[in-house]
Design a protein around this nucleic acid. Structure first.
Lengths: 219, 219
DNA sequence: AATTTTTTAGACAGAGTTGTCCAAAAGGTC
DNA sequence: GACCTTTTGGACAACTCTGTCTAAAAAATT
């Protein structure tokens, strides 16, 4: 029975579903490298170790495959971001050190890792061609993560560690500062080593705290 | 005489040279919209109001045309950035207000204008395919403009208006903060109205000055 | 082991693209 | 007006890509 079979595939990825995954991974890589127009199904088939027909069986056509790629990336990245946000310092002993550590985690696990690079490029390259798809990304991605980070910062302010006019603005600035020194390298695909991530995060947190750390009332 | 003719064309853009320019403008638009692979010569010819053969006469082939497009954009943008940098406050009466004005000018004239959007997308999409071309951009673009902005900030520090550890870091952070609230909109091609540019610049300068403004020694 | 599902390789038509060629037309120069 | 250069439109071969179709092989299920 085809139906029962398909259900089993979703639950335990072997055989049929294993191919689906390897097709998706290969498609991410090829769309990233070549862009939507430049990518062709044969490249993806070769990279996935699968015949062309199998791709059409699984995903219908090139455009549907592309949509699946974007959805898969968005889900994975969002999961990663929320997992990392859960490690945001709650009631810090060493505010500066803990913020730097958090910034480094956020950067290396979510923003400058391979999923992050892949999705960012697909959005920049094809966002205008698929408005509804990327509008969804925008709400689920930047929209939610900004709000979640703003809530965390607001809590620090409430706990007397920070002094914020507008947590949303502060959240966006925090993210912008974290990437200030890495942006160009990431766009051109240079290797971003851990050391530079740390130094960028350190500089970012230093500036952020100079602007937003609560100062003793008397001094 | 062909040679004399060509020279005249370069000096006064009419006839021959006028076509060259309209081809270049059309190519910018089409490469931006469709990407390198997705763009085709017939689209560019139609948009330029020119026959396909004329494009081949002027630019050789698709790849050479693309290189010309990137060079033209880079030159224009650099000229704009340096012109704007010349308006950086030298000995400010109202530091905050003048920095906000400068940030707004930099953003609307250089970063979020159409050349800026076009070049940014071409770099993101095709940078890895033309390493030497984009390495040149990187040195002429971010490299020089960062250094120039850093020098301006250092002068403000020397004049007693700011307190900087590292002018280079401060310059990159200043640029990052200016775009903190506009980045996503620009990537997806939304209309960025003047009001949001101003509000983003205001927030950026507020934070920047909280971190870097020289404080009276006693307080 | 028999049966059903999935995968494969290859061929294929249809469409699109690049870059060249050519003869006629248009434009500019002396 | 005669001459030279540039532009044009159209035709063209070579190539690439998508998506379909087939029959045979492989894999999974019962």
């Amino acid at each position: 029975m085809a139906f029962v079979n398909a259900t089993a595939d979703i639950l335990s990825p072997r055989g049929h579903a294993a191919k689906r995954i390897s097709i998706l991974e290969a498609a991410i890589e090829v769309f990233f490298r070549e862009g939507y127009s430049g990518a062709n199904i044969d490249m993806i088939a070769a990279e996935a170790g699968v015949s062309r027909q199998t791709i059409y069986n699984h995903h219908g056509d090139k455009e549907k495959l592309f949509v699946s790629v974007v959805r898969a990336l968005t889900e994975r990245i969002n999961a990663g971001i929320f997992a990392t946000l859960a490690t945001f310092p709650d009631d810090p002993v060493d505010l500066r050190g803990e913020l730097v550590d958090f910034a480094v985690r956020l950067n290396s696990n979510c923003i400058s890792n391979s999923d992050g690079k892949h999705l960012r490029k697909l959005i920049e390259a094809e966002g205008r061609r698929y408005p509804e798809l990327f509008a969804a990304w925008r709400e689920d991605g930047p929209g939610k993560t900004w709000a979640a980070l703003a809530a965390r910062l607001a809590r620090l302010a409430h706990g007397g560690h920070l002094e914020l006019d507008d947590p949303d603005v502060a959240a966006r600035q925090f993210l912008a500062l974290i990437n200030a020194e890495l942006h160009v390298s990431m766009v051109l695909g240079d290797r971003v080593d851990e050391q530079r991530v740390v130094s960028s995060a350190t500089n970012a947190v230093t500036t952020f705290l100079r602007a937003y750390r609560k100062r003793p009332p008397g001094a």
